[in-house]
Design a protein around this nucleic acid. Sequence first.
RNA 1: GCCGAGGUGGCGGAAUGGCAGACGCGUCGGUCUCAAAAACCGAUGUCCGCAAGGACGUGCGGGUUCGACUCCCGCUCUCGGCACCA
Length: 812
Amino acid sequence: MSATRRVGYSPQEIEPKWQRVWAEHGVMNAIDGSPRPKYYDLVMYPYPSGDLTVGHARNYVMGDILARMKRMQGFEVLHPFGWDAFGLPAENAAMKRPGLHPETWTRENIAKGTRELKMLGILYDWDREVTACLPDYYRWTQWLFLLFYERGLAYRAMSPVNWCPVDKTVLANEQVINGRCWRHPDVEVEKRDLEQWFFKITDYAERLLNDLAKLEHWPEKVRVMQTNWIGRSEGAEVDFPLAGSKDESVRIYTTRPDTLFGATFMVLAPEHPLVSKLTVPERRVEVEAYVDRARKATEIDRLSTDREKTGVATGALAINPVNGEHIPVWIADYVLMTYGTGAIMAVPAHDERDFDFALRYRLPIREVIAPPAGPQRELREAYVGPGTMVNSGEFDGLDAKAGGQRVVQSLEAKGQGRGAVKYRLRDWLISRQRYWGCPIPIVYCEVDGIVTVPRDQLPVLLPKEYRPLSESPEFWQTKCPKCGRDARRETDTMDTFVDSSWYFLRYASPHESTQPFDPELANHWMPVDQYTGGVEHAILHLLYARFFIKVLHDAGMLEAEEPFTRLFNQGMVKRFGQVMSKSAGNGVSIDELAMAQGSDAGRVYEMFIGPPEEDVEWTDAGINGVSRFLQRVWRLAIEPGSIVVEGGGADATVLARKVAQTVGDVTDDYDGLRFNTAVAYLMELANTMQDYLQRGGAQGDGWMAAVETLIKLLNPLAPHVCEEMWERLGREGMLADAAWPVYDAAAAAEPEVTLVVQVAGKLRDRIALPAGISEDKALKAALGSTKVMAALNGGKPSKVIYVQDRLINLVP
RNA sequence: GCCGAGGUGGCGGAAUGGCAGACGCGUCGGUCUCAAAAACCGAUGUCCGCAAGGACGUGCGGGUUCGACUCCCGCUCUCGGCACCA
């Protein structure tokens, strides 16, 4: 193949060479005590699934471009990599192939992935590699669990939890999507009552919400998603005493205290602890049957909004504290035990759900908020807009918003209620009934109860044999650390999102052997300057990681209160209309790429193909254009004699100016992650250089400066070929260490501009003029144009708009 | 239903109040070649026109402005998120 090639370079020959050289020199190894300013460039560490394609590589290339440029700009760059190596796919693989251990499968995939990343020329500090499934890492995950436990942020509780029947484990709320398992979109999640471990993320709800405002370099979309997920609402808790009971009352939460006089019934969640207590004997059979049905219903049925609401009356009556009215107490599964107090006052006139329920069960509807147009004759639907309080005793005539506050004040004065803030966010369920995860360092002792494993006994190692931990006596049989009696270990492992909530701290001191990370080094490198990864983690990982950082901050281990300064979500790479993956059969492997057009061409193509945040379609023809571009750069730099002179008039100042402009454009675009337009600017420069040579341009200092600048600017995108050209041109040292070109505004300035001349906003002519010309002179030049005069029809402009060096608009 | 992003040539896309279509793919024509490939040169939004030139053109309808792909109002379609949270 190379024998028939007359000019150009062979990626297959030079790419492995430079990958070897970079590795030997540890080019991207970060130095902790460096005097250079630090830059922490992080990509989300992946699950080692073993099917890495060029599609998955796109965000790693983005991270690499930034790392390489920042290095050349004089930063001490931390660009580490690691593996989210615990998790179910390894167990699934092991179950399919008996005898295969999840660890073996995971290690094989990590080896494959590492090789492929190196083949793409992506430079990481491999000395800092972090692998979540190694005892050296999960020991510290356990250490952090103990920290959370000591701080009252880890607790064990019995509660109805989400259960995935396929994975045979519980799931966090964040892992349930539309009532289905996040890993199996076709599998409905079941509810089970289990005693599980939780992290008390709700303690941090307010801070997690408020600090979103500080994250100005995060995509708006992610901040909105987190805001909605946390779901803060303001309202009031109100106590409704039960009729015929001395001290029993039902506490409800409402965001509409202004509608309290419109409460015509109450609804409790079927799981509410008061249900069995307050149900009257003659209703008991029916109520128990309903509760039973509700418990069995799947999450998806229960949460479906188009389902008709059902419920049953308990026969009990509650007393509305504001007017003494006796109203019936119902139970219905549209009220959720997990939000607020698990009980509501129903105001059908002003709440759609209560309205539907009242219609179905013929319960009274009383209007208490009159729209601005006045009370309505007939309510066809719930009125939820603003208005004036009516039928509300002493509060009549008040604006609903202000009146609501007055109602709360009045309740507070009488001890019947209080203002309250609630969150949609629930505590984070971290127990998983799986083998391949980080064991929870807890022992259950008959005498001492829940006992933590002392830190000097960490890590609690997974048993060698692959089977459920509860079926591994050698694992769970232990002694109580307190009293030494026989005791049982916790056999659940942690959600893998616990592992990924702190891995970026471990990179700061990956070999630290006395604590999870060295606070001094973590404070040096944190926060992460640029974090790149998929938008699928907008809530899950990013919320948990923010929570961890705040806890560690409170524990005095970390200065930062937010982990990631700038966040970027890259788009996915598709092929034949589907997301690229090996399993879908539409993947282009890194090997194929390296064998065909080469890694450099693949890297440049992935950046050029479209805006980095958008999903893009990989086409096999598209990469050829990029391949051509790289070959053209090679000829310009190394084989300029192969370019045929076809004309005259080469202008060295035009070339120098284009070079200077490209330095500014490309640097800004890399910094702003606009890689697609950066490539376009580099192509323009190459075209200008080609044109220069074809017009017989001299290959003196100006030419060599252009070549050198082009190679430097292109280096982050196509590092192998640039490094090779650098060497062949006899430059000192490695290009990866060379200094980034500095933008020279004076050199980039155009001495002559094209002034656009409009008449009544329509383009009529273009005139070349010296830059910085005055309005008078520009007007004179415009009026000197025959095209403009024709458009003006001999008349004089009544108005002139002049935009310096750009445009003049003559309005007749 | 609510929230968010988006709709530009044959295709991917560029331009965020001032030359619409940068850059590339594809297509057509040419140079080189015995031929082909590669490479290079030229053309390429639509319509009218021999041409010069002109008209139209950024999902649809209105508005603001000297000037709108860009800002505002209404609609429509596509994609993403949330969805009985009281």
